[in-house]
C-alpha cells in the first residue's frame, strides 16, 4: 500500500507543480490545493499506514496508529484552507484591479523593484 501511495503522492506533486507553472491564476491556485493534498498524504504515509486502531484510547486496542502525523496534518489542513482562500481572494482582486489573470502580464514593472 505504501508503494502505491508513494506513487500517488508523486502524481499529485507532479500535477500540482505543472499547474503552478502555468500562466493562469486559477490554475496556480488549484495547483497549490493539490500540492497540499499531496503533502498531507505524504506525511500520513511516512508515519506508516494501518498499524493499529484509530488513535482513540476508547478503542482499547493493543496498538494504535501514529497520532503525531495526524495532528500535524490537521493543523496543515486548516492552514492550507486559510492560505488557499487568501490566495483566491488575492487572485480575484488582482484580476478586478488589473484586468488580467495572465501571469506574464502580471509582472513587476521596471524600476519598481
Amino acid at each position: 500500500m505504501e508503494i502505491l501511495m508513494s506513487f500517488l503522492i508523486g502524481i499529485l506533486f507532479m500535477t500540482a507543480t505543472y499547474l503552478m507553472l502555468s500562466k493562469s491564476l486559477l490554475r496556480i491556485i488549484i495547483g497549490t490545493g493539490l500540492l497540499s493534498h499531496g503533502a498531507h498524504l505524504l506525511i500520513l504515509t511516512m508515519g506508516g499506514l494501518k498499524r493499529g486502531a484509530a488513535p482513540l484510547l476508547g478503542e482499547h486496542a493493543k496498538s494504535y496508529v501514529d497520532p503525531l502525523p495526524q495532528a500535524l496534518i490537521l493543523t496543515a489542513i486548516v492552514i492550507s484552507f486559510g492560505v488557499t482562500s487568501f490566495f483566491l481572494v488575492l487572485a480575484y482582486r488582482a484580476y478586478q484591479e488589473l484586468g488580467t489573470d495572465n501571469m506574464d502580464r502580471l509582472r513587476g514593472k521596471e524600476g519598481h523593484e
Binding site: L25, L26, G33, H40, L44, L49, K50, G52, A53, A54, P55, L56, V65, Q70, I73, L74, I77, V78, F81, T84, S85, L88, V89, A91, Y92, Y95, Q96, D101
Partner: peptide, 28 residues
C-alpha cells in the same frame, strides 16, 4: 487509514473551500 479527526475536518473543509471557489470563480 484510521484518522477519524482528519476525515471529518477534510470533509467539512472541502465543502467550505469548494463553495469558496465557486463564489470566486465567477470573478475570474
Amino acid at each position: 487509514f484510521r484518522a477519524p479527526d482528519l476525515a471529518l475536518t477534510q470533509l467539512v473543509i472541502e465543502t467550505v473551500s469548494v463553495s469558496l471557489f465557486l463564489l470566486c470563480f465567477y470573478h475570474l
